[in-house]
Amino acid sequence: MNKAQRTRKRKIAAALMPPLLAACALFGLTTGSVSIPLREIGAVLLHGSSSEHAVILLEVRLPRVLIGLLTGACLAASGAILQGIMRNPLADPGIIGVSAGGGLAAVIALVLLPQWSYLLPPAAFVGAFAAALLIYGLSWDRGASPVKIVLAGVAVNALLGAVMNGIMVFHSDRIQAVIPWLSGGLNGRSWKHLGFMLPYALLGLALTALAVKPANLLALGDQSAKLLGQRVELQRMLLLALAALLAGAAVSVAGLVGFVGLVVPHAVRLLIGEDYRYLLPVSAFAGGALVVVADTIARSWFDPVELPVGILLACVGAPFFLYLLKKRSHWR
């Protein structure tokens, strides 16, 4: 890719993202066990209506689509940041245990403090950040080696999963609330859930603007970034916190949705390069679009069964992960 090609691709991507997102959102609004034509959506959104379709649209599909958008955007941005700071293309909040940390904290909150459900996002953030710190600390040896991060992540992931299952076994009477959430889906998510995650998601996404420069400099390598006057350890810690905030916001409502943070930034990198000025916003848009489309497919194609979107995404994402592993075997 030369400079002219890169500029053209960036322009195309930037111009395409908003319409793509809008198209995906409309696909999500129109499709389902009852299809609602576009025309009617326009009428309902503009003039209001109390028809059955309007209720489905406003009470079920619209919040769900919005949650899908935010979830995808947060996970993709989180993945893009994690890949940058860990200098590891395999980093994804789902794979390296950040989501699991958030998940465990959320399960604890759901099971032990069910009446305080608005505490889910902060709890998930704390859990995700703690897991991220743990993984980072375990793999730290004068710099966090990519391979160690993944290995530590796998181990932490397994441990957190075990603790999560343990809690559910001991509190089997209360897991009804947890099960649908765990499988990583948007079934039954409503305006209430959107309200939980919205402030955290928006804050996280807004802060990604500040992550651009440090992330770009870290991409030169720790040594070079230090020589350019950057406080590498501090910046990495702050970026880690941001990635945890984003992953936590997503996990707190959508549960354990994996691979979005892996697949999306990768695809975007291939298309427009690694500059975080473009990588972060385009990944966020594309992640939102992907989750909405995947969720719509997952809930409509297998009618009457609603497949949790996490399952569908894993079916696409896991082979992609393996493909990456195979294609680039030279990672240190």
Partner: peptide, 10 residues
């Protein structure tokens, strides 16, 4: 520094 790091796409 001693050469080694791969450069980002710049």
């Amino acid at each position: 520094p001693q050469s080694g790091e791969t450069l980002p796409e710049l």
